[in-house]
């Protein structure tokens, strides 16, 4: 699984000097980092599916950092974004944070602040990745259920007992019991309560 790979930090800034300095700093701090002169370059070289974050300048020739953030969201790219700006104008920072940016830093940025923001972004990324992996697993498990088992599952989650389910489906209560055991095995759940939590998580799975 990709989770085992070390994180990669993407630095998008049109100022070559600053970009180089950031890459140097990140490298010296033990991060793996890659630089892009424009938002377009970043999009043209889609990053491999590995943990990381994007250090993004707000103002750049062509599409801005904010434009890139919006594009990443449209593409369901989960990479967290840390903004770096030469001039923190309020409108831009509000827009960035609303759109889910991890932080909005002002140049020149203190090493500690930068690393702290990156760590947070990476932690956020890691958590997101774990949640996605879990959801994938759940979705895969759910996919193995037969239509009848899904029907039973839905009714268990609604809190119906076996007899109610059997009556509603017009099948024997014993059949319901068997199917219940089967779906619990398939989903790896030990109790009805655990099934309920699973159902809750399935409902909120990212698409």
């Amino acid at each position: 699984m990709s989770a085992s790979l070390p994180p990669l930090i993407h630095v998008v800034d049109d100022d070559e000097s600053l970009r180089t300095a950031l890459l140097r700093l990140l490298g010296a701090a033990g991060f793996e980092a890659r630089g892009y002169a424009t938002t377009g370059n970043f999009l043209l070289w889609p990053p491999p599916d590995r943990p990381g974050c994007v250090l993004l300048d707000v103002r750049m020739p062509g599409p801005s950092g904010l434009d890139l953030q919006a594009a990443l969201q449209r593409q369901n790219n989960p990479l967290p974004v840390v903004f770096l700006t030469g001039y923190a104008d309020v409108a831009a920072s509000v827009r960035a944070m609303k759109a889910g940016a991890v932080d909005f830093l002002t140049k020149p940025v203190e090493r500690e602040a930068l690393f702290e923001a990156i760590q947070r972004a990476l932690a956020h990324d890691a958590a997101q990745r774990m949640a996605r992996a879990e959801a994938e697993r759940l979705r895969a498990a759910f996919a193995t259920l037969t239509p009848r088992e899904r029907e039973v599952f839905n009714r268990i989650v609604l809190g119906q007992i076996n007899k109610q389910i059997a009556d509603a489906l017009g099948i024997a209560e014993r059949t319901v019991k068997i199917q219940r055991a089967q779906l619990m095995t398939k989903l790896g759940a030990g109790s009805a309560a655990e099934l309920g939590r699973l159902a809750e998580r399935l409902r909120h799975l990212p698409d």
Binding site: L18, L25, A28, T85, G86, Y87, P108
Partner: peptide, 29 residues
Amino acid sequence: LTGVIAHEINQPLGAILSNADAADLLLAS
């Protein structure tokens, strides 16, 4: 032009600070 001025000046300042920090880390290594 305040924004643009700040941007223009903070750009090299940011680079300087990051370079200095990088050098610091390299020396510490």
